[in-house]
């Protein structure tokens, strides 16, 4: 088991280095070099030389590569070209907004999506199942940004119930200072017992949360349903039924226990979709997290920032999936050492 963990950790590092390598070489091989991005269209020779020196581009390629990777491993992604701040600090400032959003979404997906998938599987080919399947076929065809904008039109434009975008109203931001203990506003405002600010933060997160949940829901119910269907076809489910176990107990105690393991995979996979989707959602709702930041950085040709954030997001995803894989050992007696 420890050997397996060690192997997986090694693989994680190798994969990350691979990811860094790919981004590095792509940025050097394909048209649109960082220099052009950095200084615009009609640079002077001195500007180019200065920029190359700053980015280390005057060095031979393999030197550049070693430097890039070793700095990236240490978490040094350079200075953002747009804000002139170290990229690491920018990431630190924004990551918790993304974590707050994705964590809450994951929670919501587990609470809502998984039961829908399970019910759909238990009552397969019933009207409930058909409805769920039809909705999820339609659901995956919706672009994330349209879902977000539709919600904005309805709940801000038509009903006026919820704010359009952002993480806090400016009045609340100015009048209700609270300590950024965790960086997650919902928790921080509660810790500060500032309920006005809490309500404001909660109102702001509803729409991004709903958007991200809605676009990921079809995926989660679909995977959950398939996993549950597989479990229900297992021989041991038939055995339990053949020995007079009530269906309710078999489905929701026995089969769900078997679902626990694949369920963790669902959560891990979902996180991947969430990280991708959060880029668009944060952009739509002006959510001050990593996703919106990376989009704007790419659009503004801020190479160090963009590469830094994507590497961080990728490592987060890989780490979570590693943890999920390791949890298998806890949940599945077959994998535990006898």
């Amino acid at each position: 088991m420890y050997r397996y963990i060690a192997q997986r950790l090694l693989l994680l590092v190798v994969t990350l280095i691979g990811v860094a390598t790919i981004t590095f070489f792509l940025s050097r091989v394909l048209p649109g070099s960082p220099v052009e991005m950095m200084i615009g269209f009609h640079p002077t020779a001195e500007q180019i030389a200065a920029a190359k020196k700053e980015l280390g581009l005057d060095q031979p390629l393999h030197r550049q590569y070693v430097r890039f990777v070793s700095e990236a491993i240490r978490g040094d992604f350079g200075i953002s070209l747009r804000t002139k701040q170290p990229v690491v600090e920018e990431i630190g400032r924004r990551s918790l907004a993304t974590i707050e959003l994705t964590l809450l979404t994951t929670l919501l997906l587990v609470v809502v999506g998984v039961p829908i998938g399970v019910i759909s599987a238990v009552h397969s080919n019933s009207p409930v199942d058909h409805t769920v399947r039809t909705l999820s076929i339609a659901g995956v065809a919706f672009p994330v940004f349209i879902v977000g904008m539709l919600l904005q039109m309805l709940f801000y434009g038509k009903l006026g119930w919820l704010p359009l975008q952002g993480r806090l109203s400016s009045e609340v931001y100015l009048d209700h200072p609270f300590d950024r203990v965790t960086g997650m506003f919902l928790i921080d405002t509660l810790l500060a017992r500032d309920y006005v600010a809490f309500r404001d933060a909660a109102a702001h997160i509803v729409l991004p949360l709903a958007t991200l949940t809605l676009v990921t829901l079809p995926l989660v119910t679909r995977i959950t349903r398939n996993l549950m269907m597989e479990v229900l076809q297992e021989d041991y489910v038939r055995t339990a039924l053949a020995y007079g176990m009530p269906r309710r107990v078999v489905y929701y105690r026995y089969a769900l226990k078997a679902m626990l393991i694949p369920l963790m995979t669902v959560v891990g996979l979902t996180l991947g979709f969430l990280l991708g989707g959060s880029v668009v959602v944060e952009f739509v709702f002006d959510w001050p997290g990593l996703g919106g930041y990376v989009a704007r950085s790419i659009a503004a040709s801020d190479f160090p920032a963009a590469v830094g954030v994507t590497l961080v997001l990728a490592s987060a995803y890989l780490t979570v999936n590693l943890v999920v894989d390791l949890l298998y050992f806890v949940a599945d007696p077959r994998l535990r050492r006898a």
């Binding site: 297992e234 021989d235 041991y236 038939r238 055995t239 339990a240 026995y254 226990k257 078997a258 599945d332 007696p333 077959r334």
Partner: peptide, 8 residues
């Protein structure tokens, strides 16, 4: 029997 009994 390996499949008919619950592995968990």
């Amino acid at each position: 029997p390996g499949k008919a009994l619950n592995p968990f």
